[in-house]
Design a protein around this nucleic acid. Structure first.
Lengths: 237, 237
DNA sequence: TTTGCCCTCCCCAAATCTGGCGAGGTGGCG
DNA sequence: CGCCACCTCGCCAGATTTGGGGAGGGCAAA
């Protein structure tokens, strides 16, 4: 088992493109003898990207219906840190239950474990294993393989980040201390006038910071700048 | 080895307070026979929190000089995803080298591995192992224990998040689909007019959504609302 | 069925933000 | 020593956002 994990990680480490990630998900699925393995990810540009073993039909359906916006797995994982068993999620709404039923029809599986992964600059990814089986069988699988899955998920994300950045680069522009302070106060809901008082400078000076931050962040307006600063982990509210 | 890891994880899982985390770092250090293990973390309120085996002198010094703002380990890890060996970081600046020399004097160690961990709402933590040894010895240690350290780091963070939230609470108010869409477009930098076009509604209607979202989120203005929606993981830019 | 939330639309005046102009002092790095 | 980035301040005019009104139809849960 452990050797297999090693082999997979090595394969992943040598992955050259998304196709290789795809192959990796298939190997994993076969290795664990479960229904699906999926890794997908939303980058800072809002582009979706994924590799996995779901049927094309389901992927198309998912995109068509814009399920990303209501999928309880996504919504739940966005708020959590630990790997989460699908059973623990909030399926109380009618829409959620309908979605789940449909997913099962498309062969996704009635059991699942999703691991949220967060990278720098607000990057968020999800690594999911799913299967068709009873609660007992699934618990056994999860207990046995959770750790390995976490490591694998990490390897996937490492690779995805490499692909995105094309090596490294992505020098997220550093904001100066005052610029960060300005962004922080704005993110806390202060008006420019209030923030200026808080920082003990004139409102005009504050404006200079905000504009500097806007330019550095390539933001279109103040709200955008604050959103980017937050997303990139430059400030925390 | 593996059993020891299990035991440690179990101990962590039952940790009741920060003191237990402290104990865990000491056990880990003794187990791996290295100089230090440190877990520290900046929460959303900007409060720093830590458990580790560094000497109190060094911690005091670090806080006093506000090294957090220039520590290359912190700055480097904020931009990365993978565990990072201190050797890979940017020590080119004069201040950085001086800092490193001082750290060694305080017994921190000349070798280190730091694992960045990110949680929901921009939470960021660092798990670090350090020692005094040559490059070869350190590589061997890292190769052998990286995976375990990653899992342990994860356990630490899981616990830290539990402590912060005091169980769960924080029932983040659900926004309606249109409200979420409105927040998302604003977070992407669109003006209200643009977002209204994008959503194919009048600008006035859009305003109603924004105000509704503001009220639900307890936000003082639009920027604040977007910041909160982002922080709470309700939307992704 | 009634209540409540969601979606849609409209007006107006005040407050706020944006963009562009210019100016001076500090401190680090090569 | 010069360059560059940072921090600080002022004025003005136009564009945008905000806050507070009101109003109707739809859908779903209680």
């Amino acid at each position: 088992m452990q050797e297999k994990l090693e082999a997979l990680c090595e394969f992943l480490q040598e992955a050259k493109d998304v196709g290789d990630l795809q192959t990796a998900t298939e190997r994993l699925r076969d290795h664990y003898r479960i229904a699906h393995i999926v890794y997908h990810w939303v980058n800072s540009a809002g582009e979706r990207f994924g590799a996995g073993t779901y049927s094309q039909d389901w992927v198309d359906r998912y995109v068509e219906k814009d399920y990303l916006r209501m999928d309880p797995v996504i919504l739940g994982c966005l708020q959590r840190f630990n790997p989460v068993d699908w059973k623990e999620l909030d399926w109380s709404s009618r829409a959620a239950r309908a979605f789940f039923r449909e997913a099962i029809e498309f062969g996704v599986g009635n059991q699942g474990l999703s691991i949220p992964i967060r990278g720098p600059a607000g990057q968020f990814a999800l690594f999911t294993a799913s299967d068709n089986c009873d609660d007992y069988g699934w618990s056994a699988f999860v207990d046995e393989n959770m750790r390995d899955l976490m490591i694998i998920a990490h390897e996937f994300n490492k690779k995805a980040l490499e692909f995105e950045q094309g090596g490294d680069s992505a020098p997220s522009p550093a904001l100066s201390p005052r610029e960060l302070a300005a962004m922080t106060y704005l993110a806390k809901g202060m008006s420019r006038a209030q923030a200026a008082v808080e920082m003990e400078i004139s409102e005009h000076t504050l404006r200079v910071y905000i504009e500097a931050a806007r330019h550095k962040l390539g933001a279109l307006n103040t709200t955008h700048a604050v959103a980017r600063a937050l997303s990139r982990g430059l400030i925390v509210v």
